[in-house]
């Protein structure tokens, strides 16, 4: 498979690019740039993100009065370089959000698929858990888990992973139930296919598109959840920078040093914009019903 796919890749990318409209192309370029910046943060960042300069706090971005040379986006409440912190924060936040969204996708998707396929008591149990999760505000669950197990990075990733699993489960289960009633599944079953084969060959391709949409939605949701938890003191520990924590802290400085909040907020905006546009696009391409025949 890989041997065949490799030579085809450039052609596929070129075709993808040719089919995209201007906004989609912009989103793709933006996503690649953000990804590159996140991966290369240690090389690109002009300063150590945690290096303080207590007597040069809250200096504005380059071009403004009192700006400090070299600090293009200004300095924060402890005199740290905002550009460097944004780059490192982007790296950590993307990592956290991706890990969280993938955990949610795998957990919720699997449970939803099992529920839809098997029905009966299994389905009732899964949907009961989904209802329980919806009934309790997620911030409360997150606070409880973090207070109970301590707010270390692994616990935080798991908590972020738990965010939104029930949405995946609901969507996948509903889709599965709908598909199971379709004639082609009936045909596959008549041909002797077991549940695993049905799931793999017949269900999964049809589930990709709603899952991709949900994935992009929850990715942005997780970035915001991380911000909420950071503000409550249960996110990543200071001085480590995440975009959410930077916004949470920067909010207090909005009247006198707005650049502290603007830089990470714009970064969050760019990330969610790119992710949403790409998600939309992927859905259009992946959905067999929308695919040109």
């Amino acid at each position: 498979m890989t041997a065949l796919a490799a030579p085809r890749a450039p052609g596929a990318l070129a075709r993808l690019w040719a089919e995209a409209d201007a906004v989609q192309r912009a989103a793709l370029v933006l996503a690649l740039i953000l990804l590159a910046l996140a991966l290369l943060a240690p090389l690109v960042a002009p300063f150590d993100p945690n290096a303080q300069s207590l007597l040069a706090r809250m200096r504005p971005p380059a071009g403004f009065e009192r700006a400090r040379p070299g600090h293009w986006l200004g300095t924060d409440e402890l005199g740290r370089d905002i550009l460097s912190r944004c780059l490192f924060a982007l790296r950590l936040t993307l990592g956290l959000a991706l890990a969280g969204a993938v955990i949610g996708l795998v957990l919720g998707g699997t449970l939803g698929l099992i529920a839809g396929l098997l029905g009966g008591r299994v389905e009732a149990a899964v949907m009961g858990a989904v209802d329980a999760q919806i009934a309790v505000p997620f911030t409360l669950i997150a606070l409880f888990v973090l207070v109970l197990f301590g707010n270390t990075l692994p616990v935080l990733v798991i908590v972020l992973g738990l965010y939104g699993w029930e949405q995946y489960a609901r969507i996948v289960r509903a889709e599965t139930r709908k598909l199971m009633a379709m004639p082609f599944i009936e045909a596959a079953r008549a041909a002797g296919a077991g549940p695993v084969r049905i799931a793999r060959v017949h269900l999964m391709p049809n589930l990709v598109s709603p899952l991709v949409v949900q994935f992009t939605l929850s990715l942005s949701g997780i970035v915001l959840l991380e911000s909420t938890l950071s503000f409550l003191g249960l996110g990543v520990q200071p001085p480590t920078a995440t975009l959410g924590a930077m916004v949470g802290v920067g909010r207090d400085y909005m009247p006198n040093a707005p650049w502290i909040v603007i830089a990470p907020a714009v970064t969050i905006l760019l990330v969610t914009f790119a992710v949403q546009i790409l998600g939309d696009w992927l859905r259009d391409r992946a959905d067999p019903r929308l695919r040109p025949r």
């Binding site: 402890l78 707010n151 520990q237 001085p239």
Partner: peptide, 25 residues
């Protein structure tokens, strides 16, 4: 919170390995 972060830098300057643990309890 600001002081805590600044104190960690001051500790580091004399070789103390400090770590912040922020929690509401």
């Amino acid at each position: 919170v600001l002081a805590a972060q600044a104190i960690m830098e001051m500790w580091a300057a004399v070789g103390i390995n400090g770590r912040l643990n922020q929690q509401p309890a």
